[in-house]
Nucleic acid binder design. Structure first.
Lengths: 185, 185
DNA sequence: GTCTATAATTTGATAGAC
DNA sequence: GTCTATCAAATTATAGAC
């Protein structure tokens, strides 16, 4: 049950996602979200009773949107290389759009202080992302020394997570491209 | 001016570092730190008047400790490969010791909601880390297609950051080793 | 579904005694 | 340097009118 962007619930989730990715789960309040959307904090609670509910909804919507945007990893119309480039571009957009790092990375960072359902949402995000990457990588012709597909997917995801983090921490968007350019070669 | 571990100020910084790396800057309070050290929150304020002061002190101590532990990147007694392995081990220890990710990554994650001096401390950490890595990589014999040392260092740091994050988010410590094993080959 | 009003708690921070 | 006591503000969350 993912709210559309047009509904109030959808606007709330969108605002909360942006805030979470910029500032972390504890870096925004119900009042912040209410102000973003143009309503009062009590109305936010009407749609998402607790902050745990809101955080879990954000994680679920974020994961679904990513997987939907990526599409079928086995689509014969698209080469594995093109699919990988598409995946890299998702992260690049977050970096370019303004200091938004991956929601999964943010959840992992603050994990110990997060409500259970939010942490679970982050784990699901990583699992789905890795499954998609593994499916794509399985299509590539095996190299001379075939690295386990699982390890390749982990390495790819880790590189993107870290590159986005460094670019944000250093205020250097070009650091992202420098770090990940080897992927596309 | 870095407090020793034995002093109260040192214990406060150590406790704050652990909490920041596990839970984020907004994931702990002065009262939490006071309880960890065995004093009252007013006493914590005596050593670090504001949370910004405390966060900046943690970042500075963390950076200094890492660089000190790594030592001279041009030490002829140690090969570049051994130095890289040492660097990887620093991150592995954080993962193994229990869900502690890199402080620099955590600061980058929450950047927008952090006090200025804390954010600056995170940037300094990344700069110092990259400088050390670049110095080590400059010693390696250039490969056929010489990748820029700067890009190599960024890629290495990003991979470690991301691998630690994924391991924490998935509760899978083995994910870290799988993701970074290619570095050591 | 949104609002006003407010409860209950926590937080960063200060004053002042010892 | 540590304590007790307390403040002012912010936070999550709820009750009830419209």
């Amino acid at each position: 049950m993912t709210a559309t962007q047009a509904s109030t619930a959808g606007k709330i989730v969108a605002a909360a996602e942006r805030r979470m990715r910029e500032s972390g789960f504890h870096g925004f309040s119900f009042r912040d979200i209410a102000a973003d959307v143009g309503i009062k904090s009590a109305s936010v609670h009407h749609h998402f009773p607790t902050k745990e509910d809101l955080g879990a909804a954000v994680a679920e919507a974020y994961t679904k949107r990513l997987i939907d945007a990526l599409g079928d990893p086995n689509d014969p119309q698209r080469t594995p290389e093109a699919l990988i480039a598409l995946y890299v571009d998702v992260y690049r957009q977050g970096v370019q759009k303004g200091r938004q790092t991956c929601l999964g990375g943010m959840i992992a960072c603050e994990l110990t202080s997060l409500p259970n359902e939010v942490g679970r949402g982050g784990a699901v995000f990583f699992e789905r992302s890795l499954s998609w990457l593994e499916a794509v990588l399985r299509r590539k012709p095996p190299t001379a020394e075939p690295e386990a597909v699982q390890a390749q997917a982990l390495r790819l995801l880790a590189l993107l997570q870290g590159a986005a983090l460094i670019a944000k921490g250093l205020h250097r968007k070009d650091a992202f491209d420098l770090a990940v350019k080897s992927i596309l070669e």
